[in-house]
Design a protein around this nucleic acid. Structure first.
Lengths: 163, 163
DNA sequence: TATTTCAAGGAAAATATTTCTACAATGAAG
DNA sequence: CTTCATTGTAGAAATATTTTCCTTGAAATA
């Protein structure tokens, strides 16, 4: 992984429809080596997938709720069951195990508060939870799928562009 | 927007590299109308973009921190300035204005705790904040870019597939 | 310094795939 | 029975992917 790989990743994180030739041009490479690099990044799993990102408004996914969860059952069985339950809910788009006084944090996406209430009832019907607290987002000011690449570990200097 | 559009979106949310012909086959349509639908979904902005999703581990983005922010300055100027500052940080991948006792919530992605501390110092150097509290994620159990489409508003019944 | 080796890039072309356009057919609604 | 929206078939044009083979330059070794 060198600076060229990073440049390629940056471009594809922004726009995955770019043709290999265009990526190549932008990073200052010809198509063949650029194609080989992308291929490799995919094989290695650096690039996990390519997806379409939708407009939340347009698909009626207007409300984001952060759900903080505390549990009594601090054991792997409970977590396993809980994870499986959560993964079934398409409304839960993110799910973290946390340090600190909150045990788990969910990001839930629904059309409105009423739908959130329905989701909430479905959730607590499926699994026992000690304590749930919901925080509503009023506005999504920034949302990106792009990971910061400045921290990426570079094996070596980028190969000098040969004449 | 009917059930066919929804089906198309579901597929493209999962995998944006699918050829139109493949999408068509899966939704039970021939390529032309499927192509036209996708075209329209893009024009209307339902599909916002297509992106490559990277593996956080592989690009050294291992630690997620949720940063809760309280401010004294409840005015549009401060928010504007704050937003601009935040948008400059590639480490901040999500940013919400919240209801409740927390004013803003950030999701920050960095390689490790030391980097988070550096980020934190950079942030408070740039803008005055009353109160910051950081919660560290130990594990990302679920993360998806797919929005739930079950809530999508359908104009009408899907057109009957014609013979 | 000469020579070998190796990793990476470049050009070009074959292949494959995709996109996009015309035009005909269908079925529902009025 | 007319109209309108939508689909289907087929094919041309454009693009993209992938392979083959060659070149280059850096590093290693004698």
């Amino acid at each position: 992984m060198d600076r060229l790989d990073r440049k390629i990743l940056r471009l594809l994180q922004e726009n995955a429809t770019l043709a290999v030739a265009d990526v190549a041009k932008k990073v200052g490479l010809s198509t063949t080596p650029c194609w080989r690099r992308i291929q490799k990044l995919e094989e290695e799993g650096v690039i996990r997938k390519r997806v379409a990102v939708l407009n939340p408004e347009k698909v009626n996914a207007r409300v984001t709720v952060f759900v903080s969860i505390r549990t009594n059952a601090h054991n792997p069985e409970w977590l396993k069951r809980f994870s499986e339950v959560i993964k079934e809910f398409p409304e839960v788009v993110e799910f973290y195990r946390m340090s600190g006084d909150v045990d788990y944090l969910l990001r839930v996406v629904v059309p409105d508060i009423a739908s959130y209430d329905q989701f909430y009832k479905k959730l607590i019907a499926k699994i026992e939870i000690r304590n749930v607290s919901s925080a509503f987002a009023m506005e999504q000011i920034k949302y990106t799928t792009e990971l910061p690449l400045d921290y990426m570990v570079l094996d070596k200097e980028p190969a000098q562009a040969s004449a």
